[in-house]
Amino acid sequence: MSDATDAVVLEGVSKTYQLGDQPVAALGGVSMRLPRGSYTAVMGPSGSGKSTLMNLVGCLDTPTSGRVVVDGQDVAALSDRERTRLRGREIGFVFQTFNLMPRLTAAENVALPMVFQGVSAAERELRARQLLDRVGLAERANHRPRELSGGQRQRVAIARALANDPALLLADEPTGNLDSATGRAIMSQFADLHRAGNTVLVVTHERPIAEHADRIVHLLDGELERVETIDEPRRPHAGDTQ
């Protein structure tokens, strides 16, 4: 059963999409737990259900069956409003496809989650700049997403995920568009967050990236194939590269 020390608990979680009258099982009975302060990587071939899993943990979606418990609360039992609140306050989400607001500048994109939590404009501005600085994009603060490279957009997305100082950081292929140097910089950011006590869940198909985590969860066809424990995770410091 769920433990107060677990940030996330999945119990027999299934997600079936209905395509016309054709059911598509994206996840079929996955059970796992993410203790608070843990660092977990998810690997698996394309279409194995990684993004589906992230959406469920990120309170964006609810399971067809089974239970998803985030921060001690059953996500399916929450009202839409409470779920949104949980998502906004406790969870930072880096999407596989960035999902930046095209009309907002990088700084405004980073500040967006704070808008909905009632943070004052001055405070938002300050924090957005700091976060962009942390991902090495301080001088791009006033650019719009279309004026940024793929990797830069990804870093804006990461900065935005950190905006509300989330206890749970979810990242779906955060280094997919980055060169190895920038990728390492990002991973050292995650390592720092992990050291600071946050729970981190990263989806990746790159083995070296996955090896930053304490353990790697392997998904295959929507099922949990195996959980691999990393004895000596890579733990770069933010100052290590660049």
Binding site: R81, T84, R85, N99, L112
Partner: peptide
């Protein structure tokens, strides 16, 4: 639609 999705994903309530 996509922008609305993004806003909701980062914590916008229905009433926002």
């Amino acid at each position: 639609t996509r922008e609305i999705g993004i806003m909701k994903a980062v914590g916008a309530q229905n009433r926002d």
